[in-house]
Simulated assay, not measured.
Amino acid sequence: MEKSSRQTGAVLARFDRYVLSQLFVLFGFFSLVLVSVYWINRAVILFDRLIADGQPASVFLEFTALSLPNVVRMVLPMSAFAASVYVTNRLASESELVVMQATGYSPWRLARPVVIFGLIVGTFMMVLTQYLVPTSLEQLRFRENEISGTLSAKLLREGEFMNPSEGVTFYIREITPEGVLKDVFLSDRRNADRATTYSSVDGFLVNEPTGPKLVVVNGIAQALNTETRKLTKTKFTDFAYNISDLIDAPGALFKPLDQRSTAELYFATDLVSKATAQTPGRILEEVHGRFNQPILCVVAALIGFSTLLVGGFSRFGVGRQIIGAILLLVLVKLVESIVTDPIRANANLWPLVYAQSVFGLGVSILMLRLAARPRRRRKDASLSEARA
């Protein structure tokens, strides 16, 4: 008897390792595909902007590397779900799940490798949400501010109307290899009572200790008094315009919520609320969301497994179960959207952040109970026949 139980335990241990290996192989594949899709989408825009600003390829690679942790964070639950669905479907279609269930093991026992898989993925997600993503986003924003704060990124673009600051429009038709700006147009409408437009044949950007200046030659300045509707024209041979206030400062003191550490958000909620103009509820939503996302990895894997397990073996496939699993994920996301506004309005409702995970785990448990019920019925029926 002991020998038989040991053999059965060894078979199940090998089955667990087999399922885990299949899950991680498919998880890696789906993660690679989804990350590539997200990355290509962002890389096209990023590449166009950085190359247009004259930045080297090394900057593009740096920005790509800094944006990857956040992209990986977004795709992990979807990859875990897709891997769970695919592996469960293959095990069911090849009758491997049927064989394991025929040995007398319940869906709860068969779900063990899926739970282990979800916990491992959730651990990786925890590292991302607690450290890698905030750190990478903070560094990415710092580098973006450094680049966007340069004159070349803000103003030196040929044939494009730019708005470096609110109420200001700037245009250059051409920039010569010598750095001469051809056909310069500058419209300053920041003063509500007076709108001024400068246009010139040539221009230069000059860096001075007091700040960068735009020097334009052979041009005309037109000032419109918006109250009297009087237009004044002035011709000039050369004119210097201070543009330092058109270039935004990097703003290193301001950090959005997703770039702050969890400890800072949790233990200095009031200070962060004043610094970011966000409600305490929004801050606590961010904090607990970082703990909730790893749980969602377990939920996604369990929903994919338990929903397909309910249908059992069928010659017609498990298409309906797969659609049902996708709909359940949509419902989980819907729960998140329902509780978002109440949490942000009232910080005391922060436990609702975990509502979607509780809902997803509840659905998974219900599905596993339904999957176990038919087997019990068959077992009870066979015992009744034996007694008769």
Rank of each mutant, 00 (worst) to 15 (best):
I51Q: 10
F47M: 15
F63V: 05
A223R: 12
E178G: 01
P374F: 10
W39S: 12
R141G: 07
S106H: 10
A345S: 11
L61Y: 15
V35M: 05
P256H: 06
V133C: 08
R90K: 15
I243Q: 02
I116V: 15
I323L: 10
D202W: 12
F239R: 09
D270K: 04
S364T: 05
M162S: 07
R73D: 14
I283K: 00
F29L: 13
A83H: 11
S84D: 09
T150H: 12
R290A: 07
I172V: 03
A80N: 07
R190H: 02
N242R: 11
D380M: 07
E285L: 02
F291G: 03
G312F: 07
V37D: 03
L156E: 03
R194I: 10
G211T: 12
R290S: 10
L308I: 08
V299G: 00
G281F: 04
A13C: 06
F24T: 08
R143D: 10
I247W: 06
V72G: 12
R378Q: 07
A43W: 12
Q222L: 15
R73K: 15
E227M: 11
K333P: 10
D245P: 10
F15V: 03
P209N: 13
V310Y: 04
F15Q: 00
N242S: 14
L91G: 06
L214M: 12
T129Y: 04
L26T: 09
V215M: 13
T88M: 11
D183V: 03
F291M: 06
V206N: 05
P342M: 00
L352V: 04
V59E: 14
L186I: 04
Q293W: 05
L366T: 13
Q222W: 13
V310A: 03
S384T: 10
E144F: 15
S382A: 13
T262G: 04
P342E: 01
L368S: 00
S306L: 03
V127E: 08
Q259V: 05
N218P: 13
V298G: 02
L156C: 05
L32N: 01
G312A: 05
Y266L: 07
